Simulated scan of single mutants.
Amino acid sequence: CWEPGDALTCSDKQYIYKARCCNRCQPGEKLVSECNTTEDSVCARCESGHYQPSWTKEKHCAPHDICEGNAGLVEKMQGNATHNTVCQCRAGTHCSDISCQTCVENQPCQLGSGFVAAKAMDRMSSPCEPCAEGTFSNVSSKTEPCHPWTSCEEKGLVVKVKGTNSSDVICESNRRSSLSVLIPITAAVVTCLVGVCIYCLVHTDSRRRVPKEVSLPRAPPAVDTQQPMEQDENVLPVQETLLRGQPVAQEDGKESRISEQEVL
Rank of each mutant, 00 (worst) to 15 (best):
N106F: 01
L264V: 13
L264W: 02
Y199L: 15
V189D: 09
T37N: 13
G253T: 09
L243P: 00
G245D: 13
E105K: 09
C152K: 07
Q101D: 10
C89V: 01
E251A: 10
T186C: 15
E75L: 10
A188N: 11
S256A: 13
K254C: 02
I16K: 14
E153Y: 06
P108Q: 11
S41E: 05
Q231P: 01
S137V: 06
T9E: 11
T143Y: 03
A120N: 01
I170N: 01
K142R: 12
C25L: 11
D205W: 05
C197P: 00
A7Q: 12
L242E: 09
C171N: 03
L179V: 12
C131T: 07
S96D: 09
I170G: 00
A71Y: 02
P27F: 04
S167P: 00
P108F: 05
T164H: 04
G112W: 07
P217F: 10
C100H: 03
N84R: 04
K76N: 03
R209F: 02
V116Q: 12
K57G: 01
V169F: 05
E251K: 11
D122Y: 01
C146K: 03
A188F: 13
S96H: 09
L243T: 09
E153S: 14
S259L: 12
D224Q: 10
E75A: 08
S178P: 00
E105V: 15
E39K: 15
R244A: 09
D12V: 15
M229A: 13
V223I: 15
Q239F: 00
H94E: 04
D6T: 13
P220C: 11
W55K: 07
S33D: 14
Q239A: 04
Q239Y: 01
L193H: 05
Y17E: 06
C131P: 03
G253V: 09
C10T: 02
A91C: 00
D65V: 08
C35F: 05
C200R: 14
A120L: 01
T164K: 07
M229C: 12
D12P: 15
G253F: 06
